[in-house]
Design a protein around this nucleic acid. Structure first.
Lengths: 103, 103
DNA sequence: ATCCGTAATTCGGAATTAACGAACTAATGG
DNA sequence: CCATTAGTTCGTTAATTCCGAATTACGGAT
């Protein structure tokens, strides 16, 4: 069970972040993580239950590899959190701004 | 010669805009258009001359259909401008913010 | 009108990516 | 040990991206 890849804060790419968030399902995931006050697992963060699990798994992987979310395994589930401080240090205010205009 | 499609200002989708800008070549095009004080054609807006023209044409189409740029035919060329006011009315400050964090 | 050069789009293909179901792995509880 | 829950991996199919070659569109010169 290899450890999950996360880019270092300074290696987070703007276009990768925008591309990751620029997809309706993934934006919905980010919005849900933003509203949550603590990390939540993939099932709870998923906006629509009609999508295949494998599809959701892919969406979470894209968000993680872009540096948007942090994923840690806890027991049988993955706990997801937004990488707020890392995103803010690299792109100050960007995440908040996007979430604000996203209704 | 059909008229070029542009989404109405209120029909511009956030995820479409983010996905359009979330690609290095297209972000470079947007940055160049931002620095230009008047509309410029596709060749001048292209950041790298080694890309095929058909590829660039596609990138411009993506930006146009997402509502990021306006394209008007003038003679033999297309004049491209950022749709600042439309983007700002729909997503206030977003474009400036992205351009600011994009170095 | 016809031909030429410039600017950009369209077409056909190979390569990459996305979504899905099915099978699989990992952790926990009975 | 077996069942359950939570996700991942795999193989297929559909869609997208990128490219070069061919094509259209326009403007100017002949």
């Amino acid at each position: 069970m290899a450890e999950l890849f996360h880019p270092a804060p300074e290696a987070i790419s703007l276009t990768a972040v925008l591309a990751a968030i620029g997809e309706p399902t993934r934006l919905a995931i980010v919005k849900r993580l933003d509203q949550a006050d603590c990390g939540i697992n993939c099932g709870q963060a998923a906006p629509c239950p009609d999508l295949a699990k494998s599809t959701m798994s892919n969406h979470f992987r894209v968000l993680r590899e872009a540096g948007v979310i942090r994923m840690v395994k806890r027991g049988v589930e993955n706990i997801n959190t937004l990488r707020r401080e890392d995103l803010d240090s690299r792109f100050p205010g960007l995440l908040d701004h996007i979430l604000r205009v996203a209704d």
